[in-house]
Design a binder for these strands. Structure first.
Lengths: 205, 205
DNA sequence: CTGGTTACTTGACAGTGTCAAGTTGGAATT
DNA sequence: AATTCCAACTTGACACTGTCAAGTAACCAG
C-alpha cells in the first residue's frame, strides 16, 4: 500500500510523472528537437537540473518517455482489437490498424521509441512495456503460421511489414509522389499466405 | 569541363567533399551523437564555422551525408543484384540482401537516412539519390504483381517488409531473446504470393 | 597593380547536458 | 517537542553545441 504514494513527497507531488508528461507534450508540440531536459524542467516549474536527478541523465528521461509510449501503444492496439469481432484475421488486421494509427498520431513519440540511438534498451521498465506491446501482436499471430517457422514466422512477418509500412508512410507524408501513399495496408494483407495453425497447438512463444 | 574542378579552389581543395567524408567517418565511429559541425570542421582542419558556409546549417550537412548514403545504398543493392543470375526471384532476393547488408554495416548512416527529424527531404540532391535507390528496388519488383495494385503493390510490400525487418534486426542486436533473431529474411519470402505480371506489361512506374 | 568577390576565419552569444556543492523541508529519533 | 538526518531538490559552474555578424586573406578580372 505504500508503493502507491511513495512518490508523493516533499515540495512537488510526483515530479517524475510531471516530467514525463511535460516531455510527452514537448515531443508532440515540437518534435524530438524540442524535447530538452531544461525545457521539461521549466514546464514542470522546477530547477533546470531536477530531471537529471530522477532520470539518470537525458537518456534516462528519453527512456522513460519511450516506456510510457509503449504503454499507450499497446493500449491503442488492444482498443482496436476489442472493436473487432472474434474472427482471427479481423483481429490481426485490427491490431495492425492500431499500430498504424499510433504511428500516425504520435509520430515523434513513435520515432523516439524506435530510434536506434538515445534509448537504452537495458532499462527494465522499457523492456517490460515493449515486451507487453509485442505480446499483443504476438497473440494475434498465434492462430496463423507463415512459412516454416510456425507462428513465430508470422510474428516477424507481420511486425516487419506493419513497421516498415508505418515508417515509409511517415516519410511519404513530407515528400510527394511516393508510391506508399497510393497503397492501403489492408490491400497488402490478402497476398500473405496465412494458414491456420493446427488447432489447440497455438505456440505463442 | 569547368564543372569538374570548380570545387578545387582557394586554401583547401574540395572542402565540401572532405566535410562529408569526415561526417561519414564520425558517424561510423561514434554514431549520430558524435556527428557535429565543429567536429567535422576539426577533422577537415578548417575553422569551426566553415561547414555552415557550405551546407546551410547542421541540417544541410546531415542532408548531404544522407544523400551520399543513399548513393552507396543503391550501389550496394546493384552490386548484389549483379551477383544473382537472371531469375527474377533471385534478383529480387539479392536486392533485399543488399538492403539488409547496408543497414547492418552502416547502421548509424542508415538510421540517419530514414530518421524522421533532421533530414530535409525537399533537397534536390537527396531527392534524386533516394529516388535512384528506390528505382533499383522498383525495377526488381516490376516482374511481379501482388494483390490488386499490380507491381506497385509489390514495391510497397517488399519495401515495407525489408525495411521493417532491417529496423527490427537492428534493435534486436542490442536486446536479447528477440524473435526476429531466429528468423532469416529468406524464410519470409516464400510465403508471399508473387505472381508473374503479364509478360511485356512490366509497369515499372 | 588595383579593386572586388569568393572562401573562409574570428569572435561572440544563447542554449544544451552534466556535475559538484549547497540548501531546505519533512520525517525519524530521542 | 527538540534535534538530527537525509532525500529532494537548487545553485552555480563548465565544456560543448549551432548560429550569426564581422573581419581577413587569397584569387581573379581589368
Amino acid at each position: 500500500m505504500a508503493a502507491e504514494i511513495e512518490k508523493k513527497r516533499h515540495h512537488h507531488g510526483d515530479l517524475r510523472e510531471a516530467l514525463i508528461e511535460a516531455g510527452v507534450g514537448l515531443l508532440r508540440e515540437g518534435g524530438r528537437s524540442a524535447l530538452t531536459l531544461r525545457r521539461c524542467a521549466a514546464r514542470a516549474a522546477v530547477s533546470h537540473s531536477a530531471p537529471a536527478h530522477y532520470f539518470k541523465g537525458l537518456d534516462g528521461l528519453l527512456t522513460a518517455i519511450a516506456a510510457r509510449g509503449y504503454r499507450t501503444f499497446a493500449a491503442t492496439m488492444i482498443a482496436e482489437r476489442a472493436l473487432a469481432g472474434a474472427d482471427p484475421k479481423a483481429r490481426l488486421m485490427a491490431i495492425c490498424d492500431g499500430y498504424l494509427m499510433f504511428a500516425r498520431e504520435h509520430a515523434a513519440l513513435f520515432g523516439l521509441m524506435f530510434s536506434a540511438d538515445d534509448i537504452g534498451f537495458e532499462d527494465p521498465e522499457l523492456l517490460r512495456e515493449s515486451a507487453a506491446a509485442y505480446q499483443v501482436l504476438s497473440e494475434c499471430c498465434a492462430p496463423f503460421r507463415h512459412g516454416s517457422a510456425g507462428s513465430k514466422g508470422t510474428e516477424v512477418m507481420i511486425w516487419s511489414l506493419v513497421h516498415g509500412f508505418a515508417m515509409l508512410s511517415h516519410k511519404a507524408r513530407a515528400g510527394d509522389g511516393h508510391p506508399v501513399k497510393d497503397i492501403r495496408f489492408a490491400d497488402l494483407m490478402p497476398g500473405l499466405t496465412l494458414r491456420s495453425a493446427a488447432p489447440g497447438k497455438t505456440n505463442t512463444k
